[in-house]
Amino acid sequence: MSIFIKTRHRQGSFISTSSLPDIIFILLFFFMVSTRLRDTQILVNVVPPAASESQKLEKKSNVSYIYVGQPLNTTKHGEAYRIQLNDRYAETGEIGSFIGAEKAFRLPEEQKNLVVSLVADKRVKMNTIQEIIYALRQSEAFRVNYATRKE
């Protein structure tokens, strides 16, 4: 009995916060590993078409992006739909060299499985899409992902 009485009367016990930085660091590392830095500034306005059967994109490190949409700054760049590769506007003729560059810094076994994600606005005309798809086939990037949004 005496033991309990002693503890009850002890005073000045407070929660130790010395492990708090460690907990926060673990959280920090978790976020660093599970997320991806915003590497490209998106210059086009994209509203992807809706689809119910869409699948999740696996292995994000092996994905290249092609954006198609209306420029954000329509007064400066016009209202026509543009293609964006990396950080600038491009033409369909440049897709070949873009894929070449994307493949160049990947391992040979990854190069075959390179997925090109086509993030295109729903109002884009099919001829733009067909030109891009044809250029991808020419540069032997056969795996594509048509980016959609969940219904």
Partner: peptide
């Protein structure tokens, strides 16, 4: 550590990307 954590929360994206996947013919 909190500051670093908030910095990473702001600058990264965790958006899961979805789409219809296809393999193109040569």
């Amino acid at each position: 550590a909190f500051l670093l954590l908030i910095f990473f929360l702001v600058t990264t994206q965790m958006k899961t990307e979805v789409g219809i996947q296809r393999v193109l013919p040569p």
